[in-house]
């Protein structure tokens, strides 16, 4: 039996008690949401917290609300399955549904939460391995050592952010609400990722992600997410593209936003691609140019099983072309 290291456990009934506990414990404690990312990391001894602080006893963290002016507010502990079948999300944000449905398996969607997906640790073929496997090599940067086995000449960790929800939320310009014993703060999702594979989140010690707020759709717009992976049934993305596209009454592109995942240590927006389309009539030629720009923004390295970096980069372009083409057609914009 693959066992967890010895850890203590607490499940406070309110968010303020979680905040107090986390501020006292700081690094030795880890927040437990669905556990589908954290517990494998503990079993493999990538992480060895002394205390798990469960968010499972706080019902308000599972709320989903829609408001015409604020948009959709999704509690961090909302399961991906609950989000996937939420009528408000289905009505307004198709890409959120497509991404939630593309995460892992049915079981993982029931257990995994939106908050845990946004706060996902970065991944690497040299990191997500058992302790005995890792012991055959020098300790790498992400485990506190001094070398990287993927880019040996660099002094940076290139572990890859592989969440499916973040690119969609970036394309939709979502904000995060964070709570801590020092008070609340709100920031754009694009300000949440460091780009450092070792420590991918700019979350402060003791902070808890409370909710995600997705602005309301304005006028005629839609969104889509496409992902490339080895097995359609289960795997993490090797490349993922999310697009939001808005049309004017006469069928031009009013607004556009493109974001990519699984090709660097952070999910990123690609304004260079989106800006090409704004105010224009969306032609096949323009879509191809945007796809090229998006592919140029991808910087995968050889640390994921299943495809070479150059193939993943190429797939970013192909997925961009497909999402843009289908969205433009759905919105009745001419694609010539």
């Amino acid at each position: 039996m693959m066992r967890l290291p010895k850890m203590d456990y607490a499940a406070p009934p309110t968010l303020s008690e979680v905040c107090v506990l986390m501020s006292e414990q700081q690094e030795k404690a880890e927040l437990l949401a669905g556990g589908t990312d954290l517990l494998p990391a503990c079993k493999l001894r990538n992480k060895q917290p002394t205390l798990l602080v469960s968010l499972g006893k706080i019902p308000s963290l599972k709320d989903i609300r829609f408001d015409e002016s604020e948009g959709l507010r999704i509690g961090a502990m909302t399961s991906l399955n609950a989000l996937r079948y939420d009528p408000l999300a289905i009505a307004h944000y198709p890409a959120l549904i497509e991404a939630a449905a593309a995460v892992g398996t049915t079981q993982l969607q029931h257990m995994g939460t939106l908050g845990g997906n946004i706060c996902l640790d970065t991944r690497c073929t040299y990191y997500n391995q058992s302790e005995s496997w890792r012991q055959t090599r020098a300790v790498c940067l992400k485990m506190g050592g001094e070398v990287c086995h993927v880019v040996p000449k660099g002094n940076k960790c290139y572990a890859v952010f592989s969440g499916d929800m973040a690119p969609v939320l970036l394309a939709l310009d979502a904000r995060l609400k964070l709570a801590s014993s020092a008070g609340e703060r709100s920031l754009r999702l694009s300000e949440f990722y460091s780009g450092d594979g070792r420590k991918p989140l700019l979350i402060r010690p003791g902070e808890i992600l409370e909710a995600v707020i997705v602005p309301p759709p304005a006028g005629k717009e839609s969104s889509a997410y496409l992902k490339y992976r080895v097995r359609g049934a289960i795997d993490f993305p090797l490349a993922g593209v999310a697009v939001r596209l808005a049309a004017t009454a006469d069928g031009l592109c009013r607004d556009c936003s493109v974001a990519i995942t699984a090709v660097s240590s952070a999910p990123v927006q690609v304004p260079e691609a989106a800006d090409l389309l704004k105010g224009k009539s969306v032609t096949a030629e323009l879509i191809n140019k945007a796809a090229q720009e998006t592919s140029r923004a991808a910087h995968p390295v050889a640390n994921a099983f299943g495809a070479t970096p150059s193939y993943r980069r190429k797939m970013i372009g192909i997925l961009t072309r497909r999402t843009l083409t289908s969205l433009a057609q759905n919105l009745g914009m001419a694609v010539r």
């Binding site: 039996m1 693959m2 967890l4 456990y9 437990l32 556990g35 589908t36 517990l39 494998p40 079993k43 493999l44 798990l52 469960s54 399955n81 892992g104 398996t105 049915t106 079981q107 993982l108 029931h110 257990m111 289960i234």
Partner: peptide, 24 residues
Amino acid sequence: CGLGACGACTVLVDGAPVLSCLTL
């Protein structure tokens, strides 16, 4: 697998299928 990838440990918790190997 003990790591969430095979489903052999699936049980229902309040009716939902979950992986008992990754459930505290």
